[in-house]
Design a protein around this nucleic acid. Structure first.
Length: 570
RNA sequence: UGGGGCGUGGCGAAGUGGUCUAACGCACCGGAUUCUGAUUCCGGCACUCCUAGGUUCGAAUCCUAGCGCCCCAGCCA
């Protein structure tokens, strides 16, 4: 039930095309690309993927699909001190789960270390790269500032022979970390700081998750990325805005090497309201235990969204709808939620679950009698069929569905008032039983109208319909209610929030341990998704066990009543 | 005069000189239907496209000048 569809994502013809597609169209018309369009998704395995990466994944794989080309999965694993295999595993799982297939094209920048090394030697031979002995601090100092040019390193004019020798000795492990680097020899006075002799290789005596201890010099991203794309024959290298300044550097490398030139196109990364999408901040939340790991259902990570109950379809739909452009923007998280509701509305079975139970006794209903009521599983999908639900004298209803002294617009249960119990009868609240000492309502004594059984013609209409569960048949469960992780729309904005953790929502998780579910929910498995009638969409949590079911609220239903209360009660 | 980008409704985003008193989606505001206050449906929501000039019969789209916002000074990616 609710298994992720294995179908490959379809192309939505109604979607308007984005500027990247216009550029690719132009390239093809101009005959600039020989074969099919070839893209790649290039994550660094130093953290878990989040919804922002989903945008990039959908874009890159989507472009390949649209143009009948291919998209590679390539790990940019050039920094061994930050990368781990568990991250590559999680990334592969997430991309797969999202519904994309990279076939046998699973690559690693580390696959190209030897080639990259040879390329570097070529640049040294051309006098376009040199080994620098400056310390990190000195290099920074020599780089100049945004408005002043830099100065050339004393090592800049070393002989080719000396550079070749030194570089080989760097590789051989003769120097300590930080002692020497290989730099491109470009222009220390360039207005573009990336061209002020950028570092190509640094020394790390670190264990790499793939190349193990074979290397002690590692290429910088800027040196590895463009060449990796070239090696793979990427036609269109899609990346985010901050790399726009790096494009001239990539072009320079490629020109010096005289190899294939992918076209780089930059787009604006995703920002989402009420959450953060920076790997650094997400890592911090995990490390400081502000959340329960990378897959905490409040996290905007793919694994968090999955655990929360999001479907891959809804995430892909979201990525389609937000569009692709160059203007920085923040998408309202309500759109993501809308996409999930829309998907689950048509696919999730309806069930009844009482989260905060209030006992009611139907005084004129025979003790011991059980009636099997018919309940449709999904009004949006007749093929989903129906199920039997036991109706008895003692039931649970939602505590918030009763008010002793209700406002005029409240059309749920109140003393003397009638409501329909979904799939069952119309009942009337006769008396309210309270705890003598606390005044708390502990039970409602009601009567039912036998002539109003669900499905049978009845002339009577009541304003409200409530969900309920037979007390005798109820399954106990834990339900976790999630809300936005942050209380402000832009928690990641450093000017608004110097310390983004101050904006953490203290009420982002509420655990309810006394929930009553209808018995059909007994055999569920982690990942199964349901609509709890009138309450929202819920999914079975990873930690759920048959004897201790746990449900996560993925998203609430639209709630007009809550809005009225908020508007009038404020 | 450091370099590179971006500015269309509350939020995204189409639009590439005439059909723009500007598509579409989200949000929001009505109203209809409803045994989920859900869904669905119907209607509303920019005389205006950062501003000011200019070109043109005609500009969100072209030109000029301003203004605002974002990115870059990691041996991170």
């Amino acid at each position: 039930m609710n298994k992720a569809s294995n179908k490959t994502p379809e192309i939505d013809e109604s979607r308007t095309s984005n500027f990247i597609e216009h550029l690719i169209d132009a390239d093809r018309e101009a005959g600039k690309i020989a074969g099919p369009v070839h893209t790649r998704f290039p994550p660094e395995p130093n953290g878990f993927l989040h919804i922002g990466h989903a945008k990039s994944i959908c874009l890159n794989f989507g472009l390949a699909r649209k143009y009948g080309g291919l998209c590679n999965l390539r790990f940019d694993d050039t920094n061994p001190v930050k990368e781990e295999v568990r991250y590559v595993e999680s990334i592969k799982e997430d991309v797969k789960w999202l519904g994309f297939d990279w076939g046998d094209r699973e690559f690693y920048a580390s696959d190209y270390f030897e080639t990259l090394y040879e390329y570097a030697v070529q640049l040294i031979r051309k006098g376009k790269a040199y080994v620098d002995d400056l310390s990190p601090d000195q290099i920074r100092e020599y780089r100049g500032t945004l408005s002043e040019p830099g100065r050339e390193s004393p090592c800049r004019n070393r002989s080719i022979e000396e550079n070749l020798d030194l570089f080989a000795r760097m590789r051989a492990g003769e120097f300590k970390e930080g002692d020497r680097v290989l730099r491109a020899r470009i222009d220390m006075s360039s207005g573009n700081l990336n061209l002020r002799d950028p570092v190509m290789y640094r020394i790390f005596k670190a264990h790499h998750h793939r190349t193990e201890d074979r290397w002690c010099i590692y290429p910088m991203y800027d040196w590895a990325h463009g060449q990796s794309d070239a090696i793979e024959g990427i036609t269109h290298s899609i990346c985010t805005l901050e790399f726009e300044d790096h494009r001239p550097l990539y072009d320079w490398f490629l020109d010096q090497l005289g190899i294939h030139h992918p076209r780089q196109i930059e787009f604006a990364r995703l920002n989402l309201s009420y959450t953060v999408l920076s790997k650094r901040k997400l890592l911090q939340l995990v490390q400081e235990n502000r959340v329960d790991g990378w897959d905490d259902p409040r996290m905007p990570t793919i694994s968090g969204l999955r655990r929360r109950g999001y479907t891959p379809e809804s995430i892909r739909d979201f990525c389609d709808r937000i569009g692709v452009a160059k203007a920085n923007s923040t998408v309202d998280i309500a759109l993501l939620e809308h996409c999930l509701r829309e998907d689950l509305n048509r696919s999730a079975p309806r069930v009844m679950a009482v989260l905060d139970p209030l006992r009611i006794v139907i005084e004129n209903y025979p003790e011991g009698q059980v009636e099997e009521m018919e309940g449709e599983n999904n009004p949006e999908d007749p093929a989903a069929g129906s199920r039997k639900i036991s109706f008895t004298r003692e039931l649970y209803i939602e505590r918030e569905d009763f008010m002793e002294d209700p406002p005029k617009k409240f059309f749920r249960l109140a003393p003397g008032r009638e409501v329909r119990l979904k799939h069952a009868y119309i009942i009337k609240c006769e008396t309210v039983v309270k705890d003598e000492s606390t005044g708390e309502v502990v039970e409602l004594r009601c009567t039912y109208d036998p002539a109003t059984r669900s499905g049978e013609a009845d002339g009577r209409k009541v304003k409200g319909t409530l969900h309920w569960v037979s007390a005798e048949h109820a399954v106990n469960a834990e339900v976790r209610l999630y809300d936005h992780l942050f209380t402000t729309a832009n928690p990641g904005d450093e000017k608004e929030n110097p310390d983004f953790t101050m904006a953490l929502n203290a009420e982002s998780l509420k655990i309810l341990t006394n929930c009553k579910l209808e018995p059909s929910l007994k055999g569920t498995r982690p990942g199964d998704r349901f609509q709890f009638l009138r309450m929202g969409y819920f999914s079975v949590d990873l930690e759920s066990a048959p004897e201790r079911p746990i449900f996560n609220r993925a998203v609430t239903l639209r709630d007009t009543w809550a809005r009225i209360v908020k508007k009038e009660g404020a």
